[in-house]
């Protein structure tokens, strides 16, 4: 994304216009670039965290293909797909939020932040109400809580461990994202962001894209490969 030449900007105006970088940076650009690098590094740790999860998935799938196929068949592709669509929409709106901040369109910024947050909420609600809850009712829970009587493969509890483990860690990231989006909204309402200062919007935007991307991997791995 482009770097704006913040320091040629006139002073006065909103908080975002008057914003000066922290003392140990040369200027706002320098700060922006540094923060963005920090965010990218943090996101690489997130990717590596999920990479560990994916490796676990791959190895256990190799050991117990039958259990994984049986378990995967018991997931509802409809709700999974719907959630994928919801997250894709939110990815677009969060990108629009960043764009609006860059252009100084305060109304559009707030609108897109709200829509993104609504999508996130919808995702969590669908996950809990239409996926976790029915599974719980039927006893398809991981490990020691597994009580589903019609399991075809003895290793099916293992599959549910992977399913609940990975989706719960992902959902936790979505919920943290909801907190961050709310924080952005509060700051946006105070006029904290504008063409010369939108570091936080950019950072959270990147985070949100990564959370979506992880789901884009989880969805086919869990729901589609039978």
């Amino acid at each position: 994304m482009s770097t704006l030449h913040a320091d040629h900007a006139p002073s006065g105006g909103t908080y975002a216009d008057r914003y000066v970088a922290a003392a140990h940076f040369r200027d706002r650009d320098h700060e922006f670039e540094s923060v963005k690098m920090g965010v990218w590094l943090f996101l690489s740790t997130e990717i590596l965290l999920f990479a560990g999860m994916f490796v676990g998935y791959a190895i256990l799938r190799m050991l117990h293909p039958e259990a994984f196929i049986a378990g995967s068949g018991k997931l509802s592709t409809f709700w999974g797909l719907l959630n994928t669509v919801v997250l894709l929409i939110s990815s677009w709106t969060v990108a629009m939020a960043v764009r609006s901040a860059q252009l100084g369109k305060q109304g559009a910024l707030q609108f897109h932040l709200i829509v993104t947050n609504l999508c996130a909420t919808a995702f969590v609600v669908i996950k809990l109400v239409f996926e976790y809850y029915p599974k719980w009712q039927e006893g398809k829970l991981p490990g020691k809580w597994f009580s589903y009587p019609y399991a075809v493969d003895p290793s099916e509890p293992l599959w549910w461990g992977i399913y609940f483990g990975s989706t719960a860690i992902h959902a936790t990231h979505v919920i943290i994202g909801m907190g961050l989006l709310t924080w952005l909204l509060i700051r946006a309402r105070k006029g904290h962001f504008g063409p010369h200062h939108y570091t936080a919007v950019e950072g959270v935007g990147l985070y949100w894209h990564i959370v979506d991307m992880v789901w884009i991997f989880l969805f086919p791995l869990l729901y589609l490969i039978h």
Partner: peptide, 28 residues
């Protein structure tokens, strides 16, 4: 981050017996 996820799975394993590392349940 890799030890992060490992320790998290270890805690899941201990508290919920999800079986990933438990040979009795097919884990490794």
């Amino acid at each position: 981050p890799v030890i992060g996820i490992t320790l998290l799975l270890l805690i899941f394993e201990r508290l919920f017996r999800i079986g990933i590392f438990d040979p009795a349940m097919g884990g490794d």
